[in-house]
Design a protein around this nucleic acid. Structure first.
Lengths: 141, 141
DNA sequence: TCCAAAAATGTTATGATATAACGTTTGTGG
DNA sequence: CCACAAACGTTATATCATAACATTTTTGGA
């Protein structure tokens, strides 16, 4: 190995790094405008929505960030780079999400699609419900 | 049986019926604004977005219409009333969708969630790819 | 090194999606 | 027939996302 880091393309730009750090610091998915409103983002000089969306697009291209469609929000990927589909568990009480791998399920889903003659290239799964903490809190009340 | 129809609540209102008919006539999902722009809708006197959204909300409550999150669009449910989760196959070429039942897969997905202590109440699956027609057309070119 | 092409960014404006607030009408049960 | 709830109309506004175009930065050769 010639280098001490694993490369998947060029280094992140300053904007991209700033946005990624912001998402990592958040404990739940943030909308682009949530990100835009963060002090760290303003300090970095980012002040237009497009600036945020552009950084998010690049981060998604690399699989470092995922979009939660049903929330119009973005969350950093805590599973490291991966090829297979992931699903998200979204707590309707606290808004936090949990990412789950869908190894076998992806195969199953894509199989169901193939039965219909459909050639799948992307699978998205979002599940809503209560996270363990919120379920416990609800049970206690 | 006392009646010849199966009831699941009160009859649809005129607005709801108009919107449902519009979605049934469409060959792919429509956004609320797509619906708003249809001649049949204008003829029925519906002219504000909120009018459409309200009808769509009620239709979704009854399971007669589904929302495709990744398209911000709505499609009528051609599977009749159902409890279990459904998935959508979305063709990235023609924009048409196919609804597929997820009987066994839902169990699997919810099981994965339960492993994490998550109590799931809703599962959404959206898959993009090419429908049989578009795949054939692409192969021919 | 320096230049040219590509990528990223800044800035302004605008497009697309969705809901708040509030008053009126309609439908339904007592 | 009345009272209540649901649906509706209307206006305004909130929220999410991209177009267009000029400028700067990065990068990869000559």
């Amino acid at each position: 190995m010639a280098d001490h880091t694993h490369h998947d393309g060029p280094a992140l730009t300053r904007n991209q790094q700033t946005v990624l750090t912001a998402l990592k610091s958040a404990d739940k998915p943030l909308t682009a405008y949530d990100v835009l409103g963060l002090p760290a983002i303003r300090k970095a000089g980012m002040k237009a929505p497009l600036t945020i969306y552009r950084a998010l697009d690049k981060l998604m291209d690399r699989g470092l960030v995922h979009r939660i469609e049903s929330l119009n929000a973005f969350v950093h990927c805590d599973h490291g780079p991966h090829d297979h589909a992931t699903g998200f568990l979204i707590c309707t009480d606290c808004g936090r999400t949990l990412e789950v791998r869908l190894e076998s399920c992806e195969t199953h889903l894509a199989g169901r699609a193939r039965e219909q003659g459909f050639a799948v290239d992307n699978v998205r799964v979002e599940m809503t419900g209560r996270c363990p903490e919120c379920a416990a809190r609800a049970a206690a009340s």
